[in-house]
Structures are given as structure tokens and as C-alpha cells.
């Protein structure tokens, strides 16, 4: 005999119907520093698009050298608001063109790192035995290495040997090849964690295939930590790119913020603005991705915050 005791008349929680991502977005919208980060990233994205398609002034234009407007201090001439270098290059224009270069490196290298990291992490998580252990070992090695030294080494030699026209793509490839280990650890960890969860056990007992479990359960769950780390990885990649260009190890014909800083150090005694303003651009762009990453982390993993 069964007696119906309680009828669920209404759904108690009101969050039904709204998907996981909508909930995360609602949470993110309340996070002021996360929104500020999104705004900063958006600003540089707009700048990059303007620089690529709309800006009438080309990158690395020495026009001022012939027009007598080189080595202008900032805020003295509204055609060159942030001043010009001794060589005639306009600092504001270089910030605009540099944002395209640096966002390309930051995002492109991160995309490669994610692809490699997910691949290695998934195989290492699923394959036990020798293959899994070997991949885990390789991941650990790449995690322990002082990768920046190798990145610099490959960037210097690669830029010399490979055709110059490749520009920043070479840097994107090198940063991606050396930057995947963190993502691989996350994916592998998530696979181990999620495999133990009840609903995956349940779908296993219902006879779901391995690949179905991977794509229906594990990938969506691993997505939120990957998104968070990716945002921070973009920030880190931009900082690394800045170092590579600053040291003169990347293609000198490609406009990047690091390249202006290199010139800034040369002119440091006479023209402080050549170093100062591009540095601010780097800080706010990197800060934007860092804040965005923190904000996403709060929105996607609410348990981490009370």
C-alpha cells in the first residue's frame, strides 16, 4: 500500500529552466570587477579591430620624421596625443596597432594550448597504463621547465631561420607549444573527478558509450575551469609576448607593445612617454583578462566563494 504524502505542487527553487550558463551570466553581471575586466578586454578588442581595418595611419609609420613632428611630448599636439618617438613613430598609433598584435598572440597561443592540453589531458585521463603515465610525465616536465627561457630561445632562432613574413604566427605557435601543461592537468583532474560522480556511474550502467560520456558529461563540466584558466593564460601569454618583443627576439616588422617598449628603453633618457603609455596599455589589457578570469571563476564555481 502506498500513500501519497506530499505532492510537489510548485518547484521549490526558481532556477529551473534557466540553464547553467544563464545562471553563471546572471552571477557574473553582479560582479563589478569582472565587468570592469570585460570592459577593458572589449576596449582593446575594439582598438584592435580599428587598427586592423579602419585606421588610416599605417603601423610603424615614420611620417613625422619628415613632417618635423618627431619626439613630441604627450598632450601637446592632438594629432599625436601620446607623443612621438625620435624616429617619428606615433605612440598612440602604435598602441592601436600593437593591440591587434598582442591580442592575436595572447588569444591564438591560448587556443593552441587549450587544444593540446585537452587532447593530452583527455588521453592521459582515460588511458591508464604506460601511455597515460608517459603523457602525465611529459605534462609534469613541461610544467616544471622554466619555459620562458625556451620560448625566448626558440623565438630568437626561429625568427632568424623561418621566413620573416610569418611575423607573430611563429610566436603564437611557440607560446602554444610550451603553454598547454596547466590545461592538461585540469582536464585530467576533471576526468578523474567526474568519472567518480554518481550520474556518470549511472549512465555507464545504462550502457552509454565512452565517447558519449566524454562529450555529454565530462567536457561540459571541465569547460568552466578551462574557461577560467584560459582567460588567465591569455594574460600570461601577452606578458610573455611583451618580453619576447622587448628583447628583440620576434619579428621586428610586426607591431607589438613589447617592440615599442624596446624603443622606449633606448630613448628612456629623453622621451619617457614612449615607455610609459604602452606600458599602461599592457597593464590594462592584462588586468582586463585577469579580472575577467577571476570574475568567471566566481560566476562558474560559486562554491569557491561564500
Amino acid at each position: 500500500m502506498q500513500e501519497e504524502v506530499l505532492l510537489p505542487k510548485h518547484e521549490a527553487g526558481s532556477q529551473r529552466g534557466a540553464g547553467q550558463w544563464a545562471v553563471a551570466w546572471r552571477r557574473f553581471k553582479r560582479n563589478r570587477s569582472g565587468l570592469a575586466g570585460l570592459a577593458m578586454v572589449g576596449f582593446f578588442a575594439v582598438l584592435a579591430i580599428y587598427g586592423l581595418f579602419l585606421d588610416p595611419v599605417p603601423a610603424r609609420s615614420f611620417a613625422c620624421l619628415y613632417q618635423g613632428c618627431s619626439n613630441l611630448p604627450p598632450f601637446t599636439n592632438w594629432a599625436h596625443p601620446l607623443g612621438t618617438e625620435t624616429s617619428g613613430i606615433d605612440v598612440w598609433q602604435e598602441i592601436i596597432h600593437g593591440s591587434a598584435g598582442d591580442l592575436y598572440v595572447g588569444i591564438g597561443a591560448t587556443a593552441i594550448a587549450i587544444a593540446l592540453g585537452v587532447l593530452v589531458g583527455a588521453v592521459a585521463g582515460y588511458r591508464g597504463g604506460v601511455a597515460g603515465a608517459l603523457l602525465l610525465g611529459v605534462t609534469q616536465i613541461f610544467f616544471t621547465l622554466p619555459v620562458l627561457i625556451f620560448i625566448l630561445l626558440f623565438a630568437r632562432i626561429g625568427t632568424l631561420l623561418v621566413a620573416q613574413g610569418l611575423g607573430l604566427t611563429l610566436i603564437v605557435a611557440i607560446l602554444g607549444l610550451f603553454g598547454w601543461s596547466g590545461i592538461a592537468f585540469i582536464v585530467r583532474g576533471e576526468i578523474f573527478r567526474i568519472r567518480e560522480l554518481e550520474y556518470v556511474q549511472a549512465s555507464k550502467s545504462l550502457g552509454a558509450s565512452q565517447s558519449r560520456i566524454l562529450f555529454r558529461h565530462i567536457v561540459p563540466n571541465a569547460l568552466s575551469p578551462i574557461i577560467v584558466v584560459s582567460s588567465l593564460l591569455v594574460a600570461g601569454n601577452i606578458l610573455t609576448e611583451v618580453v619576447i618583443s622587448f628583447l628583440g627576439f620576434s619579428d621586428p616588422s610586426a607591431s607589438t607593445w613589447g617592440l615599442i617598449l624596446e624603443e622606449g628603453l633606448q630613448y628612456v633618457r629623453t622621451s619617457w612617454w614612449v615607455s610609459f603609455f604602452p606600458g599602461l596599455a599592457i597593464i590594462f589589457c592584462v588586468l582586463g583578462f585577469n579580472l575577467l578570469g577571476d570574475g568567471l571563476s566566481d560566476a562558474l564555481n560559486p562554491r569557491l566563494r561564500e
Partner: peptide, 15 residues
């Protein structure tokens, strides 16, 4: 005797 689970969820204490 059959076990009868309690239907519905614990309400959200925010609302």
C-alpha cells in the same frame, strides 16, 4: 512498507 520520498526540494533560503 514502501518508503515515500519527500517531493520537491528544500527551498532556497535567499527567497
Amino acid at each position: 512498507k514502501e518508503l515515500v520520498p519527500i517531493g520537491g526540494n528544500i527551498p532556497n533560503l535567499i527567497t
